[in-house]
Design a binder for these strands. Structure first.
Lengths: 157, 157
DNA sequence: GCGAACCTACTCGGATATGGGATGTCCGAGTTCTCGTGG
DNA sequence: CCACGAGAACTCGGACATCCCATATCCGAGTAGGTTCGC
């Protein structure tokens, strides 16, 4: 899995804390706050914009903002937006190739693919049930100063 | 996920059917049976040998054989042997870098990492509970001629 | 005829190329704020 | 003092390099069986 996922998730938490009341946060500031390459982070957020999770505003006081309430954005939404919706296990229909197996059209996926899909489904279900708000609440519980710290830093940068 | 996983899984089914009674199957034959690149498949099986899932015999009548009974090899064993035991999501401890977050030593993983680990754990658990024997039984049920077909082909090649 | 030594064919194993995608960078289009100017 | 327009600064968005790993390949080390020679 690309590490852009981790970057975007952390930055989305910042957006949930800072970009309230109609205020937008530039991607450059997000990158600076975490010490990340700015241009590449912007590229990752483009994917989130296309997925409809984030809205972008150009111009001088422009920036990024969550398009939905943080409790309506799941971790799976973010992961799929960055990594794509293709499953990690790609079945090439080996059983139909070569001397083994008749070359008929596949009526249904092979057993190996079905097992892999079940496993991925369990993974997706786990990520589906966790929202950005859940993560934010957990972080606030473990380090209550984090939101205020972020708000103060972004207000002066 | 690399496609070597799919190749090796299909070939392990063949081993379960053909390489009984002390008979070994060369990796070249396995590759030919499925129309796969022989040298690369051999390289993948090297990983399975190191993991202790397969034993290799050099020499004229050498080849590959399952090191354990097929009901004692889970899909997770094969996936981990090929892909490695590193989790797909790698936490870079972003919260400790840059102006955000104090640079203290991390006492425990961040909330995002914990959530990702839970999801991967669900995925691993699903794969752990399925063995090669389960897959083989399912295939035999759906196409009962597959084992005999494989045995006959490998006996004459 | 029988045994042993040699030879050949065949196997795995590691070292070695190559291509595609993830990673990283740059510049242009567009918008908003600001400042200066005229009324 | 107020309205207006030009300019500047700042933003995103897509096009352009670069690097690493999955993929693919080749050749050497080693073994088992077949063959041949000597007794």
């Amino acid at each position: 899995m690309g590490r852009g996922v981790e970057w975007v998730l952390h930055c989305c938490l910042d957006l949930a804390w800072v970009a309230r009341d109609g205020r937008a946060v530039p991607s450059v500031s997000l990158a600076a706050y975490h010490g990340l390459p700015a241009a590449y982070l912007s590229k990752q957020f483009q994917l989130l914009c296309r997925a409809g999770l984030v809205t972008s505003m150009p111009g001088r006081q422009g920036g990024l903002r969550l398009a939905l309430s943080s409790d309506r954005i799941s971790l799976l939404d973010v992961v799929v937006a960055i990594e794509g919706k293709e499953p990690a296990f790609r079945c090439m229909e080996i059983r139909r190739q070569g001397p083994g197996g008749v070359p008929g059209s596949p009526d249904r996926p092979c057993s190996i693919t079905q097992a892999m899909r079940r496993a991925e489904l369990a993974w997706r279900r786990e990520l589906q049930e966790i929202s950005l708000a859940d993560i934010a609440a957990e972080v606030e519980f473990k380090s209550p100063s984090a939101p205020a710290h972020a708000r103060q830093w972004f207000a002066t940068n």
